[in-house]
């Protein structure tokens, strides 16, 4: 059985991990991690630095490959994906990073438009959707500027816009407020809540306890690569 994009379909849970492990040479980043994420859930993954939060997030969008166990994303067993199917899987995700990962030589508009360009969206539709999402995150007036002239909060709003513009099923955020002041952090969280209301499944990796306490939702705690 295959899903709408032709990827092999095996399960109807949003994300499910079975005894997942990840080794980097001799170092074991994740050990025997099993968890389930339901559709339209707003989940936090927390734990101290080096606990394996970022690695787990990367495993979901195949930024890294699990060395043990199995991960099912949107019914697709990731271990069965061929190389050419990986980009299609990644288009199901919007990813937000602590260091924003914006392309400095491209304008705000172009950074956000990239998601739609890779999906071969028509130019007129790209324009419409990018401006709509930039309006939504409150940064449309800076569409023609380059990332280096933006503040940290503005950069992260661009990153959130980029994560949302493709209307992905999942939004993964790795320490999204880690380098922001409390006001900007609040804005980012509100934007993610908005995406959640629109139907996206949100997974946030953070060690910011205030952020977790300010929001109700399941929390997975990692300690030394294991679920605590």
């Amino acid at each position: 059985m295959r899903d709408a994009q032709g990827l092999p379909f095996v399960d109807d849970t949003a994300i499910r991990c079975f005894h997942v492990g990840k080794q980097f040479g001799e170092i074991s980043a994740l050990k025997d991690v099993s968890l389930s994420v339901n559709e339209n859930e707003f989940m936090f993954i927390t734990g101290p630095s080096g606990a394996g939060k970022s690695t787990l997030i990367k495993l979901f969008y195949m930024g890294e490959l699990a060395t043990e166990g199995a991960i099912i994303v949107d019914g697709i067993n990731l271990s069965r994906l061929s190389r050419w199917q990986v980009p299609q899987l990644r288009r199901k995700f919007g990813v937000i990073f602590q260091d924003f990962k914006l392309i400095p030589t491209r304008t705000v508009f172009e950074n956000v438009a990239l998601v739609l360009e890779v999906a071969r969206t028509r130019p007129d539709e790209i324009r419409e959707r990018v401006y709509a999402v930039l309006e939504r995150v409150g940064i449309a007036e800076r569409a023609g500027e380059y990332p280096p002239v933006l503040s940290g909060g503005e950069k992260q709003r661009v990153a959130v816009a980029r994560a949302m513009v493709g209307e992905p099923k999942f939004i993964l955020a790795d320490e999204p407020t880690g380098s922001l002041d409390p006001d900007s952090a609040g804005t980012i969280l509100n934007l993610l809540e908005g995406a959640h209301k629109n139907g996206a499944t949100i997974i946030i990796a953070t060690h910011d306890t205030e952020l977790i306490e300010a929001h109700s939702g399941p929390v997975v705690r990692l300690e030394n690569g294991r679920i605590d």
Partner: peptide, 15 residues
Amino acid sequence: EEIEIMRIVGADEAF
């Protein structure tokens, strides 16, 4: 870095 970002947002090899 730009190529890495392209990959994350789902760019295929041809792109």
